Computed example of a mutant assay.
Amino acid sequence: MNALGRPVEGIPFREGRTQGFARGRFHDLAYVDWGDPDNPHVVVCVHGLSRQGRDFDALAQALVGLGYRVVCPDLPGRGRSGWLTDPELYALPQYVRDMATLLAHLRVEQIDWVGTSLGGLVGMMLAGAENTPVRRLVINDIGPFLPWAPLRAIGTRLREAPPHHHSLATAERRLRTALASFGPLTDAQWRHLTEHSFYPERGGGWRPHYDPNIGVPFAPGRVYNVSMWRDWEAVRCPVLLLRGAESDLLRADTARQMTEQGPKAKLVEIPGCGHAPALLDPDQIRIVTDWLGPAA
């Protein structure tokens, strides 16, 4: 991966697709697939609430260099995946079912999982299931206790996001504000995120890549503290926990508890970031690659 986040020549890159199912209707599940498709050493990288799989381009290519195949899906309602007809389905149970469907589609016996925010919660639930294929788990700035105030703020940002931008330049300015907690990024990195966060409209201009209804579960009056400690205690695999040092969603005391309970995660705090570190910076990527190591 070069400094602009562009694919490096010689690293295979494919766009894949399978189907999920919800309430009597199938929907597309899109993913980006890096590396040798026959490689049994697979890392699955899953994004946060309003993001998509291309956030992991830089990490994916670093992992391919260590001998892995890397699969980066778009959760339903995001990116190239289909939208759900019932907004109430935009919740963890459906996401977990869809990612289980994807894993079956990939036909691999074991995976390592990297999940940012919502993607970390999905990984936690899959890793805690009986007969799980998850061998190792990297959780980026999320935990089994979610305080209501930052959840409400996330919902507010989703509801207030403009549905249309006249240019990519105005879209990028909005993105830089909305995702400021990702930490310091280069202009090239912001442009990479922008190019995959907005899609051109037929009549001109650009729209966000996601279904606005993903914010319905965060509507006023529906957001409370969330406790998932039982799910955390069910995880048995090794866990690397990343925390933005200024994160309000993964509190310092919650992160500390995660190192003491359940799988007893290894904690690494990343300075200069809130929720959640973008995993675009080489030093952040190195934290993940050093922990996973070369594919065995």
Score class of each variant (00 low, 15 high):
residue 240 L to H: 06
residue 222 R to G: 08
residue 123 G to N: 02
residue 226 V to W: 08
residue 39 N to H: 10
residue 257 Q to S: 14
residue 48 G to P: 01
residue 60 A to K: 00
residue 54 R to T: 04
residue 222 R to V: 05
residue 237 C to Y: 05
residue 205 G to S: 08
residue 164 H to F: 13
residue 161 A to R: 15
residue 55 D to N: 09
residue 146 L to D: 01
residue 255 A to P: 04
residue 56 F to D: 00
residue 144 P to Q: 05
residue 223 V to F: 07
residue 14 R to M: 09
residue 281 D to G: 08
residue 172 E to W: 05
residue 221 G to I: 02
residue 100 A to R: 15
residue 2 N to C: 11
residue 192 H to P: 05
residue 274 G to S: 04
residue 58 A to F: 13
residue 59 L to S: 03
residue 64 V to L: 10
residue 204 G to W: 10
residue 16 G to S: 07
residue 210 Y to D: 04
residue 67 G to E: 04
residue 66 L to Q: 14
residue 255 A to I: 03
residue 110 Q to D: 12
residue 267 L to A: 05
residue 226 V to G: 03
residue 211 D to C: 09
residue 88 E to N: 13
residue 70 V to W: 00
residue 283 D to V: 12
residue 226 V to K: 06
residue 7 P to A: 11
residue 205 G to Q: 06
residue 119 G to A: 07
residue 132 T to A: 08
residue 81 S to I: 00
residue 173 R to V: 12
residue 225 N to M: 10
residue 239 V to W: 02
residue 286 R to G: 10
residue 46 V to Y: 01
residue 43 V to Y: 01
residue 240 L to C: 04
residue 79 G to D: 01
residue 165 H to A: 06
residue 107 R to E: 15
residue 224 Y to R: 15
residue 289 T to H: 04
residue 200 P to R: 09
residue 188 A to V: 04
residue 181 S to R: 13
residue 30 A to P: 02
residue 231 D to H: 14
residue 38 D to H: 14
residue 207 R to M: 11
residue 200 P to I: 09
residue 293 G to Q: 08
residue 79 G to M: 02
residue 126 L to E: 02
residue 61 Q to M: 11
residue 24 G to D: 07
residue 21 F to Q: 14
residue 59 L to D: 00
residue 165 H to Q: 12
residue 170 T to L: 13
residue 277 P to T: 03
residue 57 D to W: 09
residue 108 V to H: 08
residue 234 A to S: 14
residue 282 P to Q: 08
residue 91 A to L: 07
residue 71 V to G: 01
residue 105 H to W: 09
residue 141 D to M: 06
residue 277 P to D: 05
residue 42 V to T: 13
residue 224 Y to K: 14
residue 296 A to S: 14
residue 33 D to E: 11
residue 205 G to A: 05
residue 110 Q to W: 13
residue 31 Y to M: 05
residue 62 A to V: 05
residue 185 L to M: 12
residue 70 V to N: 06
residue 202 R to G: 14
residue 169 A to L: 14
residue 62 A to L: 08
residue 247 S to K: 03
residue 82 G to C: 03
residue 46 V to E: 03
residue 114 V to R: 01
residue 214 I to R: 03
residue 241 L to V: 04
residue 158 L to T: 01
residue 182 F to K: 02
residue 6 R to Y: 12
residue 45 C to S: 11
residue 176 R to I: 10
residue 72 C to W: 00
residue 85 T to M: 14
residue 230 R to F: 06
residue 13 F to N: 07
residue 41 H to A: 12
residue 137 L to E: 02
residue 42 V to F: 02
residue 214 I to P: 01
residue 272 G to C: 07
residue 173 R to A: 15
residue 231 D to F: 10
residue 135 R to S: 10
residue 271 P to E: 11
residue 91 A to H: 15
residue 120 G to K: 01
residue 115 G to K: 00
residue 202 R to A: 15
residue 40 P to V: 02
residue 186 T to G: 11
residue 21 F to H: 14
residue 44 V to H: 03
residue 64 V to T: 06
residue 85 T to F: 13
residue 115 G to V: 04
residue 267 L to H: 02
